[in-house]
Computed example of a mutant assay.
Amino acid sequence: MTLDILILCLWNLSIAFSSKDILCIEFGNYRDTESLLRGKVFQSDRLCFVRSLDISFCPKLKRLSWEGFWDHCTALETLCLMNNHELELEDDEEEEEENNNNNRHGDEEEIRKEVTPWRFLSHPLRNLELDDLPKLKKLPNGMRHLTSLQSLEIRDCKNLKSMSEVMRHLTSLQQLSLISNSAELNARCKEPSGADWPNIQHIELISLQF
């Protein structure tokens, strides 16, 4: 374990190791997560060993579009986003396309800055948990890339009002848990008459809890 990892442990991070290197990173109450993620430790080949990532209780975290981070997470199987009250799961694929057009002759690194995590996680990610994200109002279109996702839990996201057609692209999804969300969301997901039922009816196990 190198010195820079030891320093990160002192910054309220929990990092679990195995003989193969990093297995799990939990950010906990680290208040300046975005600055941390711009550090060299998280822009290196170490990230290719991370299997579980928990980003929780980060009051200043607003975006997940981090340069040089998600493209290294090639083994990430579980992602938990919990109690990040300023976090917006930005639906910026149109913004990304516009950036690419505007910067077609520009620096490739500048273009990459606006890329969201979803397309990078299309192969490895199996489990996604979204918990207490007040600014989550709709599922980002980029989630359609998560074709290997098997379990999705959405808990206490009161402003999420529907399961959009993005869900139809999650063809490997076996379990959907909706817990303590809005009454409107639960009503839209009820079988067989809910407005969003056609978007989720392919999922084997669906749990709705008020």
Score class of each variant (00 low, 15 high):
117 P>L: 08
190 K>L: 11
41 V>R: 08
144 R>N: 06
152 L>V: 01
55 I>K: 04
122 S>N: 13
167 M>A: 04
205 L>Y: 09
95 E>H: 10
157 C>W: 00
23 L>R: 13
159 N>V: 03
114 E>P: 03
200 I>L: 03
171 T>S: 13
27 F>L: 07
39 G>R: 06
47 L>E: 01
122 S>K: 15
112 R>C: 13
209 Q>K: 12
38 R>K: 13
179 I>N: 06
139 L>W: 00
171 T>P: 04
43 Q>M: 04
109 E>G: 11
21 D>E: 15
207 S>H: 15
144 R>T: 02
10 L>M: 12
111 I>N: 15
68 G>E: 12
142 G>C: 06
210 F>V: 06
174 Q>S: 13
87 L>P: 02
136 L>K: 02
54 D>T: 11
188 R>H: 12
179 I>P: 03
99 N>C: 14
174 Q>T: 12
8 L>P: 07
50 V>P: 01
139 L>N: 01
71 D>T: 13
93 E>T: 09
123 H>N: 13
53 L>F: 08
130 L>Y: 00
13 L>K: 08
106 G>L: 10
16 A>G: 12
54 D>G: 05
172 S>M: 07
93 E>P: 04
119 R>I: 14
156 D>T: 12
71 D>Q: 15
112 R>M: 15
62 K>D: 01
185 L>V: 02
93 E>K: 07
125 L>F: 06
104 R>C: 05
156 D>W: 10
29 N>Q: 11
181 N>W: 03
67 E>N: 09
111 I>Y: 04
68 G>T: 02
43 Q>R: 12
210 F>W: 11
151 S>V: 08
5 I>V: 14
23 L>P: 04
173 L>E: 05
207 S>M: 08
32 D>W: 13
121 L>V: 07
94 E>G: 05
124 P>K: 08
155 R>Q: 06
81 L>C: 03
199 N>K: 05
152 L>G: 00
110 E>C: 08
145 H>R: 10
14 S>M: 10
89 L>H: 09
38 R>G: 07
136 L>F: 00
19 S>R: 14
95 E>C: 05
186 N>A: 09
166 V>Q: 00
